[in-house]
C-alpha cells in the first residue's frame, strides 16, 4: 500500500543513504587497521559535530526507508487495513529513530 508520497520518501531516503553507507564502510575498513578498540572509536566520535550529523542523518534516513519497506511487507503478508498500517509504519519509524538517536548521542556527545 504505497502511494506516490511514500514511494518518493523511500527513494529519496535511499539516495541519502548511498554516500552514507559508502562512508560508513570506508571508515570501518580504515578503523580496523591495526586493531579495534572502543577507546579509539570513541576518541574519534566523542564531541565531533561531523559524526553526530553523519550518523544522525543516517538514522533518520534509515527510519524513513525501513519503516516504509516493512509496511509493504506487512501489508502483503497480513492484509491489515490502511489505518492500522499507518500506525504501524509510524511506530516502526519512531522506534528506529529513537534507538538510533540514542546510539548516536551515546557515541558523539561528551
Amino acid at each position: 500500500m504505497l502511494d506516490v508520497r511514500l514511494y518518493l520518501a523511500q527513494r529519496i531516503s535511499a539516495l541519502i543513504m548511498v554516500p552514507l553507507v559508502l562512508g560508513h564502510l570506508a571508515v570501518m575498513i580504515y578503523a580496523i587497521q591495526g586493531g579495534l578498540s572502543a577507546a579509539e572509536i570513541l576518541g574519534r566520535t566523542k564531541g565531533s559535530f561531523f559524526w553526530f550529523a553523519f550518523y544522525g542523518l543516517f538514522v533518520l534516513a534509515v527510519s524513513v526507508h525501513a519503516s516504509i519497506g516493512v509496511r509493504a511487507i506487512v501489508h502483503e503478508w497480513t492484509g491489515i487495513g490502511k489505518r492500522a498500517l499507518d500506525i504501524f509504519t509510524l511506530g516502526v519509524g519512531f522506534i528506529l529513530s529513537v534507538l538510533g538517536a540514542w546510539s548516536v548521542m551515546a557515541v558523539t556527545l561528551t
Binding site: 500500500m1 504505497l2 502511494d3 506516490v4 511514500l6 514511494y7 509493504a72 490502511k82
Partner: peptide, 9 residues
Amino acid sequence: VSGSGGCHN
C-alpha cells in the same frame, strides 16, 4: 495510478 493501489506498489 498514484493512489494506494497504484503503480508504486
